[in-house]
Amino acid sequence: MKNEVEKSRRKLLLAGAMAPLVMGMPGRALAQAGGGYYKDKVIIINVAGGASGGHTRYARLLQPYLQKHSGAREVRIVNMPGGGGLKAANHIWRVKPGSPEIFFGNVSTLILAPLAGSAGAQAFDPVKFHYLGRVTSEPRVLCVGGKSAIKSIQDVQKLKRPFVFPSQGTDEDFYTMAVLGDALGFKVKAVTGYEGNADTSLAVIKGDGDGHITGWSESLGPIRSGDKNPILMVTSQPSPDYPNIPIAANIVPASKRATVQAMATILETHRSYIGPPNMDPQAVAAFRAVVTAALSDPELLAESKKTERLVAPMDGVTQQKRVTELAKTSASLAPILIAAVKDIQ
């Protein structure tokens, strides 16, 4: 084994040496965003997900640009998979003051899990985190199978039976479906236990399930090929490509609009950087500035376009305000989410 290991290590090192060339490392910037607070420091980005996941792809896209605009000595990416991001969230909630660690992942989980009373989410209060900037967000879309008799959201409302919803477990799409069912007045039968999006997608295409919710880009392929049919979007802005797909908040009764709007806002917090509650205010301001600067870097925008990792920035201050407002409006969500979880137990 040794022999073989020796031989291949050389190859590995060779591959390692190629890395910066391939990635086209941007050089150090002259002027640093955030007043040079992070100059020559180390920033650790805890990515809430595995090395192959979407969060990591985005974290890696931004890594060199964060370094460029902060002047940090190193921006290190640490994968912290588990509990749909709750593991990383609990970790960042507890770090010591002055820690260089920043959470990167899906904010909606952090808000929804405590509302639903999830085990593992009792320890933290989402409002107390420092929101440092959103990288991207995409509308979530409810799709039915291409061959399904259901062609529109009105068809769902007219169903004489519950809407069969294949799901991995209690992720944000599960909660969204519960809220939609409540607002639009149809029953949802959640079928949990599927092994990820591929599995639920197939269940919908086959007709085992009526429909499921995914990010827009994840369903784009099957939608284009006619395997799936989008019938509703949970977002605040219509898609320019598909203007005919209704938006949830626009079609629900007035009494339910606030609830659905709250859900859409939660979903739109999406992929973001978050700092611990005890983060130094100077560091908060500096990191927010760095994220904003990185996300408007033309080089990054070009790379993002080329590799189809589209960005949709929102600055940290706005995000913080949104989350604080949410804490007030989202209380109405809690009973719906808790009931949905109870249903599958």
Partner: peptide, 24 residues
């Protein structure tokens, strides 16, 4: 060659091998 080494190391499978190559 890289895959052989990763395969031989305990605990790491093909997914890790591919994920680490992706940036290159």
């Amino acid at each position: 060659v890289y895959g052989l080494v990763i395969g031989i190391l305990p605990g790491l499978g093909g997914v890790v091998a591919m994920a680490l190559l992706l940036p290159f």
